[in-house]
């Protein structure tokens, strides 16, 4: 267990307790959430609540980065935002941080909600990733993080 300071894209920082223990992704479930155009959560399903470890009132209106794990490189999220702001679909493997400091891996797909030609928000659906892909990403993200911190 260790305390780590995490810096977010909007300049805010927070200290999170990190526990090096993975919570397995439940078979067959999809984690669904929806945000406004700024990334603040407007809807989520029960699987999202269960896996995040937060209560519903702690999530509603909060930025999605509440789940950001310090092992995730900033470049991954920069790519996500650059892609969805263009109106395109983004896919990738993400290590998420739970409220209790543990983590879970997801395969995430994010799409813009386009209404009358305008992006009004984003929907994200996460599903269970393969262990092979997770292992590949562990190595890749380590390298990316090292480059960001050098």
């Amino acid at each position: 267990m260790s305390d780590v300071k995490i810096s977010y894209y909007d300049g805010t920082k927070s200290v999170k307790t990190i526990v090096d223990e993975e919570v397995p992704y439940p078979d067959g479930k999809l984690i669904v959430s929806r945000t406004d155009t700024f990334g603040n959560m407007t809807h989520f399903n029960q699987a999202f609540v269960d896996m995040s470890g937060y209560g519903e009132d702690e999530l509603l209106g909060k930025s999605h980065y509440i789940l950001r794990h310090p092992d995730m490189p900033a470049a991954a999220f920069a790519d996500l935002w650059n892609t969805i702001k263009k109106g395109e679909k983004w896919k990738g493997y993400v290590k998420n941080l739970r409220k209790d400091g543990k983590y879970y891996w997801v395969y995430a797909v994010v799409v813009p909600n386009v209404r009358d030609g305008k992006i009004v928000g984003y929907a994200s659906v996460r599903r269970k990733p393969s262990r092979t892909k997770i292992n590949e990403c562990v190595e890749l993200y380590k390298t990316m993080l090292a480059e960001e911190q050098s």
Binding site: Y25, D27, G28, Y107, R127, K128, P129, S130, R131, T132, K133
Partner: peptide
């Protein structure tokens, strides 16, 4: 097919 993804 999505449920088969965890098995690669």
């Amino acid at each position: 097919m999505i449920m088969l993804e965890p098995a690669d």
